[in-house]
Design a protein around this nucleic acid. Sequence first.
DNA 1: CCTTATAGCGACCGATCGATCGGACTCTAT
DNA 2: ATAGAGTCCGATCGATCGGTCGCTATAAGG
Lengths: 223, 223
Amino acid sequence: MASVSPRRSAAEARRTRERIIERSVALASLEGLEGLTIGRLASDLGISKSGLLGHFGTKEALQIAALERAAVIFDREVWRPAADAAPGLARLRAVCTTWISYLERGVFPGGCLFVASTFEYDGRDGPVRDLLRRQFGAWRRRLVADVRVAAGRGELPPDTDPEQVVFELNGILMSLNHTIQLYGDTGAAARARRAVDRLLPPPPAGPAGPQRPGESGTPSKPA
Amino acid sequence: MASVSPRRSAAEARRTRERIIERSVALASLEGLEGLTIGRLASDLGISKSGLLGHFGTKEALQIAALERAAVIFDREVWRPAADAAPGLARLRAVCTTWISYLERGVFPGGCLFVASTFEYDGRDGPVRDLLRRQFGAWRRRLVADVRVAAGRGELPPDTDPEQVVFELNGILMSLNHTIQLYGDTGAAARARRAVDRLLPPPPAGPAGPQRPGESGTPSKPA
DNA sequence: CCTTATAGCGACCGATCGATCGGACTCTAT
DNA sequence: ATAGAGTCCGATCGATCGGTCGCTATAAGG
């Protein structure tokens, strides 16, 4: 009678919802979006199944909320730290650095949630897969745009095919993800960096600037 | 009473077992190794759950049988068609060709079962994951050996790091797998081929042999 | 021919799945 | 003060999960 603790202000509810989503993201990266079960999640958080599901309605809505949160985290961990670099090669290389680090540090305990989810949703379609498609598309477009800038500025060969570069970049990062997840070998990050260097050669670091003199871009040491 | 059909010779039982495994592989590539459910599988095949499980004992044993069968298929579709090429660059390139084709043709309806399973078994360990590790290890070792041969024969730069090359090859193929599965874009196979060409440059196709004169290897047109 | 091994069945197990319900409770707005 | 909205609960739903059991009918082996 006294043990029931039904505290529930609007702010508290928001916090509860946050906790649910946060835990969902971590759990989903380990067990998969489908392996996420309401019962387990609820008992993990010390709340009831109905109380949990009340925030989302259906499991699918929870999955989508988790994916959207994962995108926010990805943006925070990978894109934003590199966003200030000069568009073009500099930013591409900066993004690759943060991207590799994001896998190396294990931001998601079970590896990149997007990659895992894609393979999980191989066959079936539906809102979850649609969202995944959109998220990957947006990310790819960002990278392609910067490759195009880099090629236009002469930082990459003029015959560069932007989509091709992004295709290969994605492969490098997926291979890293795969190696880390299967063998726990974070040393593979060095391999990924080498592969990136081959694909996006660093500008010559001579005392004289590269080829675009007036550019403030090329970060020498952005703190 | 009359509808029960308990035919069961040793040969018939073997065939039943084969049918189960075959269907399991296809289903697992679509729904995941864990998404494989005994009930669904049984009703798909028109047999009872207990009759199915009697062949394997546990679901885990069935998953392992499916993975082992998938390895046989992979070997048949990817390795064997290329195995006769000369060890070294020629065979590496041949393997990449069959490998890409294997993804392009959708040998497994849900993409490469090994890759999907790896990400599915991110967190948890156990016999399934151990098997995955061994299978990937064997495949990687094969490729590394051929890269080493190629480097030793001067078909690749002498400072080539074999593990690095295989790491990047794996990435290319995983990126292809990913693109096909998420967008159904088999056109990405061309991108994968271009990436392979960059990583494993084809030998100069001049009228004179490459650099190793007495070698019968370098297949000009092996039919 | 008769015994033994076994393939496959139907019935059933406890556990858990996602989801629904009515109610207890506390905020917030009037 | 009171009404309404919203949060979270316990109980419960039907379905399905992996797995077990006893049984029957046959094939295989002596």
